[in-house]
Amino acid sequence: MTASTSPDDAQSLVDYLLRLGDTTLVLSHRLSEWVGAAPTLEEEIALANVALDLLGQAQPLLARAGEVEGLGRDADGLAYLRDAWDYRNLLLVEQPNGDFAHTMLRQFLFDSYAVELWSRLATSTDATLAGIAGKAVKESAYHVGHSGEWVIRLGDGTTESARRTRDAVADLWEFTGELFATDAVDEAIAASGVAPLASELEPAWRDRVDAVFADAGLEVPTRQWMQSGGKQGRHTEHLGHVLAEMQFLPRAYPGSTW
């Protein structure tokens, strides 16, 4: 629990919680788009499990954000009534599903980050966040196993699957820098012991990615330019469409209980 929360501290905490909550929500939503279209029945169930786990993280994160913000917004209010420029998710997770290789690579890149993040958040000075982390760390450990295995199978599968996986790497790598970029919010959060500085997570993330890429026969790109802006509310063209679909009903029928 934070000892004393100045308005600035509170705002940083809200921003941080929205970043994590929006990220897990948007990624869950993307995965849920696979329902009915997965390559096997078993994979239908697996993908839905990951989507549900992420949703189960998003809801309390957004609820906590609303609580700290103190403006009477609950998780649904935050999820369904903010426009894209107020969303704070990582750009990586709003990227379209593409084919199964894209989806699994996107998932693996995120899971490798999440597993490090949640284990550090288990000792957050924010008790709610620590509680969420306690459950999420087990979930993301399972997720990274599942997505990592698929990246290997697809990278080291057939000529076609290898090509698709390489394409996925080429498309998604430029979104990985944002995972570890830090700004004033991140610094304030780290200073108050709520969360680790994101940059600290990079070495462990990189080790895992190197190992899986090696088994998958994939080259880690050396290209340096990275996309950014998601955490500050500047998104790619994709998020608007995601939200238009997701938010349609509450916006078409304002003031309704569902």
């Binding site: 078993e42 169930i45 697996a46 499990n49 399972y142 196993g145 599942h146 295995e149």
Partner: peptide, 12 residues
């Protein structure tokens, strides 16, 4: 894969 599929299908 069998183990992860089994976990996903049968222990929800």
């Amino acid at each position: 894969m069998a183990l992860t599929n089994a976990r996903d299908v049968y222990t929800r």
